[in-house]
């Protein structure tokens, strides 16, 4: 019995574009970065200190620090994109009805996008005095 051999060109013809390839690459690259970013985050907040000590002052001091502001921007952006795309795979696997799939995705991605905006606003809310001090301390020439 002869089975058809599927080649890269067949896969390209079926896909139509490179959308899924780019997401596939993104999941590997972001996953590798997140191993360090997320485990580092858990270490700092749970191992280096007792996490029950975390209060408003601690949160604000971290959100105001240039280093942790930048760290948290990457952490938020990459985790949200990695998680949203992972959930997209799960929905595509289990929700087969196209109309149901559309509405499930619409609702789920709206919630995730809203939380991302909320988190971004939080990161930009706390003061930029410290990050401004660092920038101003860099010699201009």
């Amino acid at each position: 019995m002869v089975t058809k051999v599927y080649t890269l060109n067949d896969a390209k013809a079926a896909a139509g574009n490179n959308f899924e390839l780019y997401w596939w690459v993104f999941m590997r690259v972001s996953g590798l970065l997140l191993v360090f970013l997320v485990l580092g985050h858990i270490y700092m907040q749970n191992i280096a200190i007792n996490s029950a000590e975390i209060n408003y002052d601690y949160v604000v001091s971290r959100f105001s620090s240039p280093t942790w502001k930048i760290y948290d921007i990457f952490l938020l952006g990459l985790t949200i994109l990695h998680g949203a795309n992972g959930l997209r795979y799960v929905i595509d696997d289990y929700v087969k009805n196209l109309s149901t799939r559309f509405w499930v995705k619409t609702i789920v991605f709206t919630v995730i996008a809203s939380i991302f905006v909320l988190g971004s606003i939080t990161l930009w809310t706390f003061n930029f005095q410290e990050i401004g001090d660092v920038m101003r301390s860099v010699p201009s020439h």
Binding site: Y56, V59, V60, F63, L76, T79, I80, G83, A84, G86, L87, V90, V111, I112, I115, F116, L118, G119, I121, T122, T125, F126
Partner: peptide, 21 residues
Amino acid sequence: GLAILFYLLVHVAELAAAMWG
């Protein structure tokens, strides 16, 4: 992965409360 995503959303909302004081 699903558990982490769920916690991530709760966690961001939890920290966003800092904006209200």
